[in-house]
Amino acid sequence: SFQYVPVQLQGGAPWGFTLKGGLEHCEPLTVSKIEDGGKAALSQKMRTGDELVNINGTPLYGSRQEALILIKGSFRILKLIVRRRN
């Protein structure tokens, strides 16, 4: 089963996490790295392996390109929903 975790990061880029996968690579869009001391790490809500399913209220369909555009369009606040295996 899965758990959906809301994450809100503040203060602008860099957000402190790296993505891998996506439709382009025929795999889920997941968090591959969280930078020590970065905003994602400080939130204590994101983990490597989390799947990104929503950015700023926009549902994602797995495209890494789409996710990067939405993330780049976030100035002060980035709201994410990640899906994690229980």
Rank of each mutant, 00 (worst) to 15 (best):
S1N: 15
Q3A: 11
V5S: 05
V5R: 02
P6W: 10
P6L: 11
P6N: 15
P6I: 11
V7Q: 02
Q8N: 12
L9N: 04
L9G: 04
L9W: 00
Q10P: 04
Q10R: 12
G11M: 07
G11S: 03
G12R: 05
G12E: 06
G12T: 04
A13W: 07
P14S: 03
P14Q: 03
W15H: 07
W15M: 00
G16T: 02
G16H: 01
G16R: 00
F17K: 00
T18W: 12
L19Q: 01
K20Q: 14
K20P: 04
K20M: 10
G21A: 03
G21E: 04
G22F: 03
G22M: 05
L23N: 14
E24H: 11
E24C: 05
H25R: 14
C26I: 07
C26D: 14
C26H: 15
E27Y: 05
E27V: 12
P28K: 09
P28G: 03
L29T: 09
L29W: 02
L29F: 09
L29C: 05
T30Y: 11
T30D: 01
V31Y: 06
S32H: 12
I34E: 01
I34P: 01
I34M: 11
E35D: 12
E35L: 12
E35W: 10
D36Y: 11
D36E: 13
G37I: 02
G37L: 07
G37Y: 10
G37W: 07
G38V: 04
K39N: 06
K39Y: 07
K39M: 02
K39P: 14
A40M: 01
A41V: 03
L42I: 09
L42E: 12
L42A: 13
S43G: 08
S43I: 00
S43N: 12
S43V: 06
Q44P: 01
K45S: 11
K45F: 07
M46W: 04
M46K: 01
M46R: 05
R47M: 13
R47Q: 13
R47V: 09
T48Y: 11
G49I: 03
G49V: 02
D50Q: 05
D50Y: 02
E51L: 02
E51R: 03
L52S: 01
L52C: 06
L52K: 03
L52H: 01
V53I: 08
N54I: 15
I55D: 00
I55V: 14
I55G: 02
N56I: 01
N56K: 01
N56A: 06
G57D: 12
G57A: 02
G57F: 02
T58N: 10
T58Y: 10
T58G: 02
L60D: 01
L60E: 03
L60S: 01
Y61C: 15
Y61K: 15
G62R: 02
S63C: 09
S63V: 07
S63K: 09
S63A: 08
R64Y: 11
R64F: 11
Q65F: 06
Q65E: 14
Q65G: 09
E66T: 12
A67R: 02
A67T: 02
L68T: 11
L68K: 13
L68Y: 12
L68V: 10
I69T: 14
I69F: 14
L70R: 11
L70W: 05
I71T: 03
I71Q: 01
K72R: 13
G73V: 04
G73I: 05
G73K: 15
G73H: 14
G73F: 04
S74V: 05
F75H: 14
R76M: 08
K79I: 03
K79C: 07
K79S: 12
K79D: 14
K79A: 07
K79V: 06
K79E: 14
K79T: 13
L80G: 02
L80T: 02
L80M: 11
L80K: 02
L80H: 04
I81A: 05
I81R: 01
I81L: 14
V82W: 06
V82D: 03
V82R: 02
R84N: 00
R84T: 05
R85Q: 11
R85M: 11
